[in-house]
Design a protein around this nucleic acid. Structure first.
Lengths: 303, 303
DNA sequence: CCTATTTATACTCATATTGAGTATATTAGT
DNA sequence: ACTAATATACTCAATATGAGTATAAATAGG
């Protein structure tokens, strides 16, 4: 993360990549050994930001990025406490790769290690009911005045609803920031008062942004397939979506949805060996990337 | 756009704001007299990027920004042809304001002046059928090889579909980039070969990004109300949405949608003076900003 | 070989949402 | 009183969604 010799600026432009791959059925992040996200300076040799990211990922992480999407540009002054005067602008990216080759010093870190409260596949985690809700309630009651108290109450009710059916898996960033404000995820020195595995700097916030974006996007763009092998069963596909969303889905309706949208086509092959009836293998219909550039509107258009 | 004395960097961080307001029923952009977007340097005194934008807008444009959203960070090398070595990173923002006070040297420029092909409220514009489609077809036929030709064909079919019912109003950026590649919207010196009103630098591309984002967002977040007066009729609301989307909507169903979602509440007042039955005046129900943080999922969840 | 277990896939059905209208109400102008 | 213009209410078919039940095709254990 040393500044490029070409950028002798007091303003450093840094690219941060949230590189996601599935490993053992878990969504994982590529990190350094200190759990920092891969990041590097933007060099003037690159034509565009995305090209800078791609070429840097190829060299440094030996990764050829498939799907890449810009997330957000952060430039808060207190972003990086270790570098007071050297202000960095950080441009976050989300990248999806299929089965990354394992380097020695690469770490693939399951994202639920850092966000254990985000996995609702087996119902509401005990962590949430036993620790988070009581702590947040205490924080709410410690509000300076009634208005602040009401506002905190609202935010808690939305982020961690009492009724599990109202759980909104997209609110990853809101939840992280709520926990941060309540002092429950301090990344800094003190090891106490930290839920989930901390990450250096504000990297966990960047990951939260990435998770939120990805969870939103799988609903209306066929991006899951970037994480899938060339051929897969519908159950494998469903398991991947469930792992990303942190939710359990209705099997029959999931299959109906996928088929109705024409996202996949049979390869002709079937699985074997496992217990139970063998499943058909499907492949992603790449054509939909064009067809479904047009997605459904929600406005009541006239014809 | 002169560099701030505080940022003595070879990398200049520039904020560009697409500030949108409705004027005479038209969505308009705040521009300088040369049609450039308001833009200014990011100063180290500001705590966050958004704060930098807000304080700068307050001083320079005498605008208090309501809704603000980060759009995209551009850093292409050939972004600004006038400044070869001075590479600028530009962070684009979308801001919505209600009834901006008119300054002398502010210009409010209707966005359809710059994007005449984006307005489908009166059907497909003649410009599209008479000029754009023929020109794009010629460009397609001039493709170097068959594969490129097929790819261009696909892109044209999606961006400017033959069947007007397949028009997707969200693809503003794709259309702009398609027209750019086909040489139909060159912003540079030559005045020929330019559809719509050009803007300096890459500002028209930034506006295209903003339009696309806004058109997508009005469908699932109540952002239109940022552009509305405190009380309005449902027709006024519909006209605003139609103007933004560039589409004609079904009146009865629009009203059903708005009411079913609980977005508005009656003020008790009604209009008078105009011809026809007087309309009830409504106000935005601010509560929904909290309630509807939870929006509908598209995944087939189990309960 | 028979049976239980496991997974895959097909089909059903009530309810909700959407698209495209028709019908009625309330004003201003003549 | 009648007409034009707009607002609002209601209808109805077509789809989409949520929550199942039913059936098919494999393996594993006796």
């Amino acid at each position: 993360m040393s500044p490029s010799p070409l950028v002798k600026a007091s303003t450093l432009i840094e690219l941060n990549a949230v590189i996601v791959a599935m490993a053992n059925g878990k969504p994982c992040l590529l990190t350094a050994s200190d759990l920092a996200l891969p990041s590097g300076p933007f060099e003037t040799g690159h034509r565009t930001l995305e090209q800078g990211l791609r070429s840097w990922a190829r060299v440094k992480a030996q990764q050829t990025l498939g799907y890449v999407e810009q997330l957000y540009t952060f430039a808060d002054r207190d972003r990086d406490r270790t570098a007071r005067e050297q202000r960095a602008v950080s441009i976050g990216y989300l990248a999806l790769v299929y089965q990354a080759p394992h380097n020695m010093d690469d770490h693939w870190s399951s994202w639920y290690l850092h966000f254990p409260w985000e996995d609702h596949r087996d119902g509401v985690p005990t962590l949430t009911t036993k620790i988070i809700i009581p702590a947040l309630t205490a924080w709410k009651n410690a509000a300076p005045d009634a208005a602040a108290k009401r506002e905190r109450h609202e935010r808690i009710a939305i982020a961690f609803p009492a009724n599990p059916r109202h759980w909104n898996e997209e609110l990853v960033l809101q939840r992280y920031e709520l926990l941060w404000e309540a002092g429950l995820v301090s990344e800094a020195g003190k090891k106490k008062n930290n839920l989930g595995l901390a990450m250096p700097f504000d990297h966990r916030r960047i990951v939260a942004t990435a998770m939120a974006r990805l969870r939103a996007k799988i609903k209306y763009r066929p991006v899951v397939f970037e994480l899938m092998p060339p051929a897969f069963t519908l159950l494998q596909l469903q398991n991947t979506v469930e792992a990303l969303a942190g939710l359990r889905l209705h099997k029959q309706n999931f299959r109906r949805l996928v088929e109705a949208q024409g996202l996949v086509e049979e390869t002709g092959a079937i699985t074997s060996g496992a217990s139970g009836r063998p499943a058909k293998l499907f492949a992603f219909r790449r054509k939909v990337l064009q067809e479904r550039a047009a997605v459904g509107t929600k406005l009541p258009r006239t014809s």
